[in-house]
Nucleic acid binder design. Structure first.
Length: 279
DNA sequence: CGTTTTTCCTGGCAGC
DNA sequence: TGCTGCCAGGAAAAAC
C-alpha cells in the first residue's frame, strides 16, 4: 500500500520514463478509474507532452503542456509500469497511455480503488482530497506548534488521527505504526492526552522516518514485477508493522496486533501504554 | 461541525 | 477439490 515514500519513488521512476514524452492515444479499460468524462479526458490529453510529475502527500501530479494537471492516487494497489508499444499489458491494467517513443505507460490496479482526475493546472487543489490536505511531513512544513494546536483540539485516537490526511499528509498504516512505536505512544491514545514533549518527538520521528524510508525507495510489501515503487527494501528496517508475535526490538516484550479504527495495528504493549493505564 | 461507519474491489486464504 | 466467507485497507461518502 503506497504511502509517501513509495509514491515519491514512483514519481522518480515516472520522470525517467514519461517526462518529455508526448501522448499519442489513450486506452481506458475501466472507466471508473477516470473521474472525469472519459472522452473529454482523452480529448484534453492526446497530443500533449508530459512536462513534469510532482507530488503532494500521496497524490501524483502529472503536468501537461496544455496547462492541465492529472491528479493520480494509487490507493491500495495502483501502479504504473512501462512496456514497448508491442508489449502485452498485464491483467488489471485499466489505463494505457501510448507515448511517442514507441513505449506505453500503463496503469494497473487490482482492487480498482485508484483514481485519476484531470483539472486545470492551478486548480488541482480543488480536487477532492487535495482540498483539505494537511502539511507535507518536512522540516519546513510540519511545525511542532501546529501539531500541538490541532492535537489539543481533538479527542480522537491517535492512529486514525495520523491516518487522516487533512492533519498530516503522507502517512499510511505502515508508517503510523512505526512512528507510534518509535515515540512510545499507544495507538489508541487520545491525541489531547499526549504530552507536549512527545508531540515534538512524534513530529521529528514522522519527518525522519518518511525521509529515511524514501532514501530506501520505500517499503515493498508484495512483490510486483515491472512496476515502479517495488525496488524498496525498507521493509527490512520496520520495527512494528509486520512484527506481530516477535519480540519488541527495545524491550523484548512480544508485539501485539489489535484493531484500531478498523485497521490492523501492531504495537508493543510494554513500551506503548495508554495514559489512563500508567497513572 | 467533528467523528464514526460504510463503501468501493479482488485475490488470497482458512475452514468445511 | 471446490465452495463459502472473511480479511486486507485509503479515502470519499454517508450516517450519526
Amino acid at each position: 500500500m503506497p504511502e509517501l515514500p513509495e509514491v515519491e519513488t514512483v514519481r522518480r521512476g515516472l520522470l525517467k520514463i514519461a517526462k518529455g514524452r508526448k501522448i499519442l492515444s489513450i486506452d481506458v479499460h475501466y472507466e471508473k478509474t477516470i473521474t472525469n468524462d472519459v472522452n473529454w479526458f482523452k480529448e484534453q490529453l492526446v497530443g500533449q507532452t508530459i512536462t513534469d510529475v510532482n507530488r503532494r502527500g500521496k497524490y501524483l501530479l502529472f503536468r501537461f503542456s496544455n496547462k492541465m494537471t492529472m491528479v493520480s492516487h494509487l490507493r491500495m494497489e495502483g501502479k504504473y509500469y512501462n512496456l514497448p508499444e508491442d508489449g502485452e499489458i498485464h491483467k488489471h491494467t485499466h489505463v494505457v497511455f501510448h507515448l511517442n517513443d514507441d513505449t506505453k505507460l500503463c496503469y494497473s490496479d487490482t482492487r480498482k480503488f485508484g483514481r485519476m482526475t484531470l483539472t486545470e493546472t492551478g486548480k488541482e487543489l480543488q480536487v477532492a482530497g487535495l482540498k483539505t490536505i494537511g502539511p507535507e511531513p518536512t522540516e519546513e512544513n510540519l511545525k511542532t506548534d501546529y501539531l500541538k494546536d490541532i492535537m489539543s483540539k481533538s479527542k480522537r485516537e491517535i492512529k486514525p488521527f495520523l491516518l487522516d490526511q487533512s492533519n498530516v499528509a503522507g502517512l499510511g498504516n505502515i508508517y503510523v505504526d512505526e512512528v507510534l512505536w518509535m515515540t512510545k505512544i499507544h495507538p489508541k491514545e487520545h491525541v489531547n492526552l499526549v504530552p507536549a514533549e512527545k508531540i515534538e518527538d512524534l513530529r521529528n520521528n514522522i519527518i525522519n522516518e518518511l525521509a529515511v524510508a524514501t532514501q530506501h525507495h520505500g517499503t515493498t510489501v508484495h512483490s510486483y514485477t515491472n512496476a515502479f515503487g517495488n525496488a524498496g527494501e525498507f521493509q527490512n528496517h520496520l520495527h512494528a508493522y509486520g512484527n506481530v508475535d516477535k519480540p519488541c526490538e527495545r524491550c523484548g516484550t512480544t508485539m501485539k496486533k489489535i484493531k484500531v479504527a478498523q485497521r490492523g495495528t501492531t504495537f508493543c504493549p510494554h513500551c506503548q501504554v495508554l495514559t489512563n493505564e500508567s497513572d
